[in-house]
């Protein structure tokens, strides 16, 4: 039996089918693998609870430090691992360009709204998946933001973002000492992750559903 999927149409279903088709032909992992990466990504975020308002907005209020501790540890470890993988030919650089306007104005908009929303684009969907209606409303706002950005990209946003000043990494500024810079960076960031004092803001509504001996605030 042959399964024929029509992807040439223009209705919403075929536009979705075209998304899968693009991924299949893109050569960045099979469709199953990309989906699986998402499942693990969502699983880690949910299992560590970093998608919670109390974790992200809590960090903005400096009442919770789980997000920076986890983020810095992940960065410290993978910066060393990634560098040697690239050296060995098992991975490639995908460095984003330095666009001063985009990075600074975009960063201010992003950081400000992250503190208010208590989510970011990766943790938001995980929150929606656990039933958070306010995040769903925020996602609709996000979709409209994406629409406005797409519609006015050439006229408004591209000029603000500015020209690319190159795709530079810190180690490349120290020719001959790249290994050293990467090792120092990775170790320092990992130590910072461990040294950030651990503070947690708990959500009683969540924890009350757990058995007494599994509550993280009682341990």
């Amino acid at each position: 039996m042959q399964i024929i999927v029509k992807t040439a149409g223009d209705d919403f279903a075929s536009r979705m089918a075209q998304m899968f088709e693009t991924v299949i032909h893109e050569g960045h992992g099979s469709l199953v693998l990309v989906f699986l990466i998402g499942v693990i990504f969502g699983g880690i975020i949910q299992y560590t609870r970093v998608d919670k308002f109390e974790k992200i907005a809590g960090f903005a209020m400096l009442k919770d430090t789980i997000v920076p501790k986890m983020l810095f540890l992940a960065i410290g470890l993978s910066s060393i691992g990634l560098y040697f993988m690239i050296e060995a030919g098992y991975a490639h650089y995908h460095v984003k360009p330095i666009m001063w306007g985009g990075l600074i104005i975009g960063g201010i908009l992003f950081g400000t709204s992250m503190a208010i929303f208590g989510k970011c684009p990766g943790t938001g969907p995980v929150s929606i998946a656990e039933g958070r209606i306010d995040v769903l409303v925020g996602a609709i706002g996000g979709l409209l933001g994406g629409l406005v950005f797409t519609l006015y990209y050439d006229d408004i946003f591209k000029p603000i973002m500015g020209e690319s000043a190159g795709k530079i990494t810190l180690p490349s500024l120290f020719p001959g000492h790249e290994h050293m810079v990467v090792l120092i960076f990775g170790i320092v960031v990992t130590i910072v992750a461990i040294l950030i004092p651990k503070k947690e803001l708990f959500d009683e509504a969540d924890l009350s559903k757990l058995p007494e001996d599994q509550r993280p605030d009682r341990q």
């Binding site: 983020l71 992940a74 960065i75 993978s78 910066s79 990634l82 560098y83 650089y93 995908h94 460095v95 984003k96 360009p97 330095i98 666009m99 306007g101 985009g102 990075l103 104005i105 975009g106 960063g107 201010i108 908009l109 992003f110 950081g111 400000t112 709204s113 992250m114 929303f117 970011c120 684009p121 990766g122 943790t123 925020g138 706002g141 996000g142 979709l143 933001g145 994406g146 406005v148 950005f149 946003f157 603000i160 973002m161 795709k167 530079i168 990494t169 810190l170 180690p171 810079v181 990467v182 960076f185």
Partner: peptide, 26 residues
């Protein structure tokens, strides 16, 4: 947030996790 992320070219995952792990200046 989405306008900010797209202006900067990434978010917590793309810039922070993936970008800083490459020790990228941007």
């Amino acid at each position: 947030m989405i306008i900010g992320a797209r202006m900067a070219g990434g978010c917590t995952s793309g810039h922070f996790l993936s970008g800083v792990s490459q020790i990228a200046i941007s």
